[in-house]
Design a protein around this nucleic acid. Sequence first.
DNA 1: CTGTTAGCGCCTTCAA
DNA 2: TTGAAGGCGCTAACAG
Lengths: 340, 340
Amino acid sequence: MQQPTIADVARAAGVSVATVSRALRGLDKVHPETRERVVQAAAQLDYIASPTASGLASGRSRLIGIITPFMARWFFTGIMSAIEKTLREHQHHILLMDLERSETSMSRLSLTQGMLFKRVDGLIVINVELQDAERDLVRRLGLPVVAVGSPFEDSPCVGIDDIGSAALAAEHLLALGHRKIAYVGRDYPEAAPRKTPIDRLEGFHQAMSRAGINTPPTWVLDSDWTAGDSRASAMALLSGPDRPTAVLAASDEMALGVWGAARQLGLEVPRDLSIVGIDDHELAPVFGLTTVRQDVAAQGVAAASTLLALLGLYDPSAIPDQTFPVELVIRGSTTAPAKP
Amino acid sequence: MQQPTIADVARAAGVSVATVSRALRGLDKVHPETRERVVQAAAQLDYIASPTASGLASGRSRLIGIITPFMARWFFTGIMSAIEKTLREHQHHILLMDLERSETSMSRLSLTQGMLFKRVDGLIVINVELQDAERDLVRRLGLPVVAVGSPFEDSPCVGIDDIGSAALAAEHLLALGHRKIAYVGRDYPEAAPRKTPIDRLEGFHQAMSRAGINTPPTWVLDSDWTAGDSRASAMALLSGPDRPTAVLAASDEMALGVWGAARQLGLEVPRDLSIVGIDDHELAPVFGLTTVRQDVAAQGVAAASTLLALLGLYDPSAIPDQTFPVELVIRGSTTAPAKP
DNA sequence: CTGTTAGCGCCTTCAA
DNA sequence: TTGAAGGCGCTAACAG
């Protein structure tokens, strides 16, 4: 059977197509009784407006592009899920654009006009710094943008205080009496600059210098933010002669990587090494990892709501805060350093 | 500046809009010289066909719906990333539909006509069993479907041999000499039935009964397949008087949950407890978890290619196999049981 | 409050 | 091989 069109509904309800369109979209200037009749008819016919047709006529696709450098990360999947649910409540859908390039993890794909033009109504940019050409493109297309983690021009940006988070973690270790603290999570020099890695390292440095401690450069480890890579870096660090008594990892995934290295070297956590992460990954409580918790779902809801507001579909006064609090969660992976 | 339309290109190339349309879509029956002229003109104008307009006219949205019960799982993000890249190479995009309902993890949202009608050209259904109403809807809409993990009617289905994978893991433990083996990963009775959990449990049972071993029902643990939940179940199991010497978890995430429980109880892996998982999660090598590896990216490519073939956009003879091999990866988390 | 009437930008017969 | 013209189904003025 053929799907019904707006004309079928109009006929069934005894009104014009324009009235059907207004009634179904909840516009005012429709008599309640008329609206009721239209809604009934539409329901009975199982009518749904064609998204392509209304998209062409209205110029809105009801699609939001999500830009991310790679999707297989804890932070991304969590925020994505929240964004998707929030947008769907407002009849919007998500177009995923994973900029990861499989061959070389350092470079990434570019946004193209073909991906965006007339295809999405807005963009949520997660943890990527857009290149010049991409910025121009987005500006030329006039797309509203909400940034997450890394700011985009003067678009609204949701995230946490990365500097403060890392400082909080460092201060926890310092308070326990650690002085020999290493850091894992500086981006590789070849990688595109991202605000989160930069800020967290900065927070670490700030806390350390406030405590009057000078961290040797060899104790700041580069990582691509995967568990496997940080494990490799940590292996080198921990098997050396002069070991730190504690490691601050810029993410829980990296923290677990360090933990794996310690384990392989026969070091026991926290007896021989304290480890603290940032995020509160689902495996953090499982292994008793001390961490700085952030609420990813809340950030997703905020990002989505803000974008809807930019599109004029959401009450701007109801937009939640853009900077989210974090919280130190002390579990078993940190303790005072052994007395020498 | 206004974006150029097909008419602008036609004017610039000195041909009709129909010819531009044909030339740009690579249809035959266009003189190579003409095509060249059109392509030049389009490039110079930075012309991109409006997806909504061509969608309305052609009836194809170039959008593929991805249905999943929840997206924050290792398997899902991995396959998703591969699907997205494969589809994008063919100018198709992904519409994510996460059926997870936050309040109660047991029930899930339903697919609705509003989500699908005229919005997607096809569906990739990942690890969900569709309900009757949803099946009817999909059939009525005439959407081609590719299933992953759990079959959908007689649509193509990609996946691994779940029975064989679990049996492989069990046989590894049996070969090491274990007799007291517990299993984690049976779905909760309230959950919608899913093929993967059922088959893996079946594989475990088959291997055990082939070895002539009778597993007590209390050694088969229910789990929602998260690390946290399986850790809780494992805590109860491992703190009891009669402990198994080994645990087979139906996924690596659950295996790590069991590991966390063991750790908390002061049991050492593998000395006091052998643990084997299935998947080869990114943390498996980090912790030295023995597991049965599956190639998730390959499955994603296969699912996407198969769907493109169903849409007539891909050479059917180039479709990869649908059942993927698995491989036992022995690391340090399994060893022979301690002699009593 | 409701109906009429142009488009929105492209695809696709049908003729030439 | 190319062009002309009629939709695709809906929205948005503009009238009434």
